[in-house]
Design a binder for these strands. Structure first.
Lengths: 339, 339
DNA sequence: AACGCTAATCTAAACGTTTCGATCATGTCA
DNA sequence: TGACATGATCGAAACGTTTAGATTAGCGTT
């Protein structure tokens, strides 16, 4: 900018005024400056600008796994929204690890991101402290967090799973296996509540041996399914509260020599692009990923636009049960249906 | 830092020296400073540091679509690698659009990223200019670019498709449909060359009506497949050079009332997590995503570590044909196999 | 002709670091 | 005891912007 100013024989203030349109500059000087900018190939240094202005037009986004199709889609939508608004997005994947997450959030705050969208992991205390210290707007994505009272957009997980399990019950299933991630994050907790609520509402007992915990990965779903299917009194249906784990479930079913839906029905949380292409077509709970991503982006953009002290807004979206052919009717119902 | 210095009754220079370990500071002052840092809750401002140092410890990564499973995986690997090295990653999705890409690269360079990993789109000229101007190391990912002579890691696409098509030919297929993206990017060009080479090597004619161009999206695959299958002399196998498009292919096959592999064999480029779970299990060309991501990251990290004027390094990795059950033997071969 | 008003431009401080060279105390050696 | 090397600390400039406030020029009023 100094060089431009010299070449155009004006002060840097005038150059800045022209570039930012913060003051009127005469046509004559404007032209000289623009010429100089072109000659020199000047590009404004956004770092210096950020230092002076205290804003980076960059946000941080952390998710557990970008390979989880739900997060893949949401990240994609969020990235687009911020791109449109002229913001850059720094992406971090926490791998469901608390320390990693803390480090990454520190990394992002160090770099003075203007805002943060977080699909958090683990206990909220540290997140809360980090977020309170840095005075940066945060929106929680997918997972709320006790004690962290910020904007959030989440699914009505309990209701969504309630509907799915009720659907299975109505098909005649009585012993329904349930595979979940560790319940220290809200969606897993709420989904489990939906499972219990549905069984309870139908007057069915809750068999604790049918509830298995995993760590969100395919292998965990595989192991959990193997255990359930090897038992003397195996379930007739399995619901997986997490999408990557259902791959393990399907592989376990195959490896143990059973088939879906003939021998066992399967449904899971989170839809994915291939769900209605191959056999069996998995019945899933689809989240409105487009809406979730856009809402999260909008909440943050609104804060960034200056609306700082509005009370925290919590958005609760509805899931949708995508009924396909991976769950079959059982018993009396099966009779009447096939009749 | 000023506040810390005041609280500890030292100069900012000493605080800086202690924090960065750039000079020895006495135990006494060290303690005072550390105490002050704790009391105040001081955090170094990375923006100011970047301005002074001329480095941001941030890199830019642009891909066409993060929802393409190949890029999802590669992005994930790259993000992890840079996270380990203490770098932040700014992610952009170009949506296969040239202008978007140019804007995004400018956005990234504005923010003074230290390096760039680009799965480019469109013509190389603009990319080249942009990259030459900013003096920033670039590694090309997945797609090389005539005239842009930088580090690159790509697949041996021609060989990979040659192998896949040859496999189909060996199964007895003679009319093999080929669905591709626009061939102005190197992988599409090279894959097509592999297709032609395989047919040629087998002494088969190349039927231009069996080659269809799309824009990388599911709908394009759908339309292309519909056209091919409605023709009087439809192919017995279809190869899709792009993963999202094969979803469209499968849906078109279903909608037209045919089934795979009984009526038509299908194979495609890029493996995906569900490929061996559902029926039909798609035969695919798997890219070594882990290696690709790591190599790209390593090439860039090496440049960032100071190895600036080594000659450009081009890494050519091998694909692997994952044979599953979506392609069936035809004619005489089918006889002998089923016999 | 002196005055004030407006519009255009400039000067200089500030943002929060890093770092070069200067300063100062301390101990060592001739 | 004086000269000097050594080690610790500091002052101040620099990175490239933005911006408040000062300055200047031009013009119409009285």
């Amino acid at each position: 900018m100094l060089h431009v100013a010299e070449a155009a024989r004006v002060s840097v203030a005038t150059v800045s005024a022209l570039i930012n349109g913060t003051a009127t500059v005469s046509p004559e000087l404007s032209q000289r400056i623009e010429q100089a900018i072109r000659d020199i190939g000047y590009k404004r240094n956004a770092i210096a600008r950020s230092l002076k202005m205290g804003t980076t037009r960059t946000i941080g986004l952390t998710v557990p796994h970008i390979t989880n199709p739900f997060f893949t889609d949401v990240v994609s939508v969020i990235q687009q929204a911020f791109d449109r608004a002229g913001y850059a997005v720094m992406l971090c994947c926490t791998d469901e690890d608390l320390n990693t997450q803390d480090d990454q959030i520190k990394l992002l705050l160090d770099r003075m991101v203007d805002g943060l969208i977080v699909a958090r992991v683990g206990d909220g205390a540290i997140l809360k402290r980090i977020v309170d210290d840095a005075n940066v707007p945060v929106v929680l994505l997918d997972r709320i967090c006790k004690g962290v009272d910020t904007d959030a957009v989440v699914l009505d997980n309990q209701r969504a799973v309630f509907d799915a399990i009720t659907y299975l019950i109505n098909l005649g299933h009585r012993r329904i296996g349930y595979i979940t991630g560790t319940s220290d994050i809200s969606p897993m907790h709420d989904r489990m509540a939906g499972y219990r609520e549905a069984l309870h509402a139908a007057g069915l007992p809750i068999a604790e041996e049918l509830i298995r915990f995993g760590n969100f990965h395919e292998i965990d779903g595989y192991n959990a399914t193997m255990q359930m299917l090897s038992s003397h009194d195996r379930p007739s249906a399995i619901f997986s509260a997490n999408n990557p784990m259902v791959i393990g479930t399907m592989k376990a079913i195959r490896d143990i020599g059973l088939s879906c839906p003939e021998d066992i029905s399967v449904a899971c949380f989170d839809d994915f692009p291939w769900s209605d292409v191959f056999q069996p077509q998995l019945t899933t709970v689809a989240q409105p990923v487009q809406a979730i991503g856009e809402q999260a982006a909008n909440l943050l953009l609104d804060r960034l636009a200056g609306n700082r002290d509005a009370p925290p807004r919590k958005l609760l979206l509805k899931g949708r049960l995508m009924i396909r052919n991976s769950c079959r009717p059982l018993g009396a119902i099966a009779q009447s249906v096939s009749a």
